[in-house]
Design a binder for these strands. Structure first.
Lengths: 316, 316
DNA sequence: GGGGGGTGCTTATACGTATAAGCACTGGAT
DNA sequence: ATCCAGTGCTTATACGTATAAGCACCCCCC
């Protein structure tokens, strides 16, 4: 290769120097010459060739779930990127959101990543087999329940519902309504949150709702007053607040509303929105550690992605 | 390789069959045997090895700008992914958001992508040189102004300001205030939008603002009434609507407000928010075409990423 | 029956890398 | 003088792929 030629040494020497492999006996003078040549020529290692030779890459492939990402998920991914970078990995996000199962696994496997972090909805048993066969060391699911045979990063949606409902009951609202969004991608999480809401020990009326002002108005018209509504998340909560305002119902006087996510915008509603805040601050480090362990061949169990906290504001 | 062994043919035959290279003379019977073996063994090609051999990959690397991504940008990336997938490319998003210039270029170049689509803030002349030297065929900037020597995808921030201010003037607000956000990542765009606002021919007062309720309250207290405020985007517009509400000022009676982005949530404010909607619907296809052309060695000019439309609602 | 032109494959090679193995010195210790 | 143990390198190889080049066979034509 040309760095070798420029430095007047063999290609092997270049490799020893640039990776400064412990135990290799290259004089400091030669090292300097090699490093200088590499710098001058703008040498960049070829990740593919390295992967081919060593049989493993430092690539971590993150296959996002196919729902619109809010600031929470975006921040998590960003911090995870930092954590992985600090451990010598290269994180990359892979889209192709409508592909799943074996087809998705094959696409991911082509890049021969060291790790794949994928939405459980896109990971099937056969897909995991494909990844394993391609030498992917760490396969990790992301979702509310694990997928067979691989460790998962678990999102506790039931806890959201339970916490919200407990709060509403504490605030004197024995009559609970839980919104279940009708949108394709998030509906399963809505059902999990509903299950959690129902685990709190009080009867919960479930209401399907699209993110639509007319539907929200119709729902609001069905309220008799006095209910506590768990709105799935802050977006739906803001939809409801608008509909309640239009209907002339007072919040929290007539109806109490609690959301989830603690979006920056949710502080701007009048009344200010009570919400369940998922704390994702430890997740990046724990996911990165999980990946690192699996790549090193250790076995690991599931990790939780968040802890939940109720932020009481003016809507309950 | 083992597919070859399983099918009882040479590795070259496998390659000819699986890529069905035109002009290769392999019997249909052998082809079937090879394909069957590949299927049975769950064969997945090794992208790195292919890149090594052919000297070019089908990888398109997208290096996101380091600002929190809203639904607009997310949707654009998602659609671009689809477009590129349809043309045989593999799109991947690369984070490491705090790195720029040569360091970033080296990190990107390791993957030997066919194309790099990067925020202009992270592309420097030296960085472009590194990418070129590593054989990246298509280097494309993203931002409000081009970067030397490479085609760019241009976001017309000045147009946003100009359109918003023209609308405010039409609605009878000769006294204009433009908010310039103080947040690190978006401030440059705020300044561009301000410049556009000032190009409309009326005097514009610029106000620096952090995304903070107290600052917003202080700003609102400084208003004399009658102003038209261009709030940079819908988030800031919602911040202002809350502050105006708290101060007892009527919208649009006392103050008119216009945002930008047409966020789903911006329809839920009362009054409903007037906003500038960037139409990104043609961008994915045109960016994909641009990439494809550059990879094929053609030369191309800049493309615009959006057209702007004013959505008049109740806040102006 | 000998040549010519398909047809259906195989053999060989290079891409850039990491690393095992080897090789030429040098400087003691025997 | 001989051997041994470093020291500082080089040579050779394999990873999985694409593809040029070659080779054996068959069929047809003169």
């Amino acid at each position: 290769m040309d760095v070798a030629r420029a430095a007047g040494v063999s290609q092997a020497t270049v490799s020893y120097v640039l990776n400064d492999r412990p135990g290799s006996r290259i004089s400091e003078e030669t090292r300097a010459r090699v490093r200088d040549a590499a710098e001058r020529l703008g040498y960049v290692p070829h990740a593919g060739a390295r992967t081919l030779r060593t049989g493993s890459s430092g690539l971590v492939l993150v296959a996002l779930p196919d729902i619109p990402q809010g600031p929470l998920a975006t921040g998590l991914i960003e911090q995870l990127d930092r954590e992985l970078g600090g451990r010598g990995y290269t994180m990359v996000q892979y889209g192709a959101r409508d592909v799943k199962g074996v087809a998705a696994a094959k696409a991911w496997a082509e890049l021969r990543p060291a790790a794949v972090l994928a939405d459980v909805a896109r990971l099937t048993g056969a897909g995991i087999g494909v990844l394993r066969a391609a030498g992917v060391k760490a396969i990790i699911g992301m979702g509310s329940k694990g997928v067979g045979g691989v460790p998962s990063v678990l999102t506790d949606h039931e806890g959201v519902g339970a916490l919200a409902v407990r709060h509403l009951v504490e605030r004197g609202r024995p009559e609970i309504v839980a919104i279940v969004p009708r949108e394709e991608g998030i509906r399963p999480m809505g059902l999990e949150r509903l299950r959690g809401a129902r685990s709190a020990g009080v009867p919960v009326r479930a209401v399907d709702l699209a993110f639509d002002e007319d539907e929200a108005a119709a729902f609001v018209a069905s309220l008799s007053g006095g209910e506590g509504v768990f709105a799935y998340n802050d977006d739906y909560a803001m939809l409801l607040l608008a509909a309640l305002h239009d209907a002339g119902l007072g919040v929290p006087g007539d109806v109490a509303v609690v959301g989830c996510d603690d979006l920056p915008l949710s502080r701007l509603t009048r009344p200010r929105l009570t919400t369940v805040r998922p704390d994702l601050s430890v997740a990046p480090a724990s996911i990165a550690t999980l990946i690192d362990r699996l790549v090193r061949g250790e076995t690991c169990g599931d990790v939780g992605v968040w802890t939940l906290q109720l932020i009481g504001r003016d809507s309950t």
